[in-house]
Design a protein around this nucleic acid. Sequence first.
DNA 1: ACCATTACATCGTAGAACGATGTAATGGTG
DNA 2: CACCATTACATCGTTCTACGATGTAATGGT
Lengths: 154, 154
Amino acid sequence: MPQDATNEPDGVGTGPPVPRVPDPPLDDSDYRALAEFRHALRVFLRFSEEAARAESLTPNQHQLLLAIRASPAAPTVTELSRQLQLRPNSTLELLRRAESAGLVELHTDETDHRRQLASITEDGEARLERLTRLHRDELRRFRSQAGDLLDSLG
Amino acid sequence: MPQDATNEPDGVGTGPPVPRVPDPPLDDSDYRALAEFRHALRVFLRFSEEAARAESLTPNQHQLLLAIRASPAAPTVTELSRQLQLRPNSTLELLRRAESAGLVELHTDETDHRRQLASITEDGEARLERLTRLHRDELRRFRSQAGDLLDSLG
DNA sequence: ACCATTACATCGTAGAACGATGTAATGGTG
DNA sequence: CACCATTACATCGTTCTACGATGTAATGGT
């Protein structure tokens, strides 16, 4: 009994790569702005990765903790898949590794035995808090850079 | 003769994960805003990945093409490493794969035989242009979402 | 000429996301 | 309340790529 026929991540937008081609021409300055935006993004992500690593976390473990912590109730694997834009099986594997690392706990939902509810451990939350503090400044920096660059794209 | 003692990516900031811990407390709304920002970012990156794949490119090949196209002159491997925040050897491997795919060309710099200068092929540029057009709308969307979310962080 | 430095080259490895596939639990339907 | 489509997770093998470690050629200063 196959089920997840496509195994696509439950996306927010349904079909992104529609090949409709808008008109406006692209000049060098457009490419430069785009490239600078991507560079700023990569610098931010590098920072985030190094910060996570300093807490002995992988970048995705960090994101996982954040997603769980920000959730109003203990989220299911499927909900986390949406948030993290990963396939459900990948999310589960990520959860298992995080569980082994003592960062999260998984419990079967009592009212629906198909579901696994994820919660964050004390240790996981402590690491997340430190990471989050470190991210605030860097995010401010990214915000101003990226904002300017994207504005220059019209 | 070892040389690249650290093999670190020539970063913009020198030492990101300094464990100074700023004061302000974090509440649920901070975590929610952060998580939503990350979600918006992941949706954007997913979009970008799918768009690249629709042009038979990997996400990094797309970024590579953009970096070369945006460069005022044919960039070296080291310069691209900076832009893409990758280790030089990873950048070279990325370039070689892109070269095999007919997207870029590599030529030894005539004035400095250590350097390899990267240029984009006609086909590479055509694919990049289509991709870039597709990205404009999505970037606008991301800009407004991310802007609001980051503003709510103070 | 000498040597430190720069810039690329090669290779083996590991980690993780994925596709394919399978199984258990649920819920609507007649 | 049997039936079956759907939902939700589980498992496994594969693949792809960024990386560390290491090496070599070219350059530039003294």
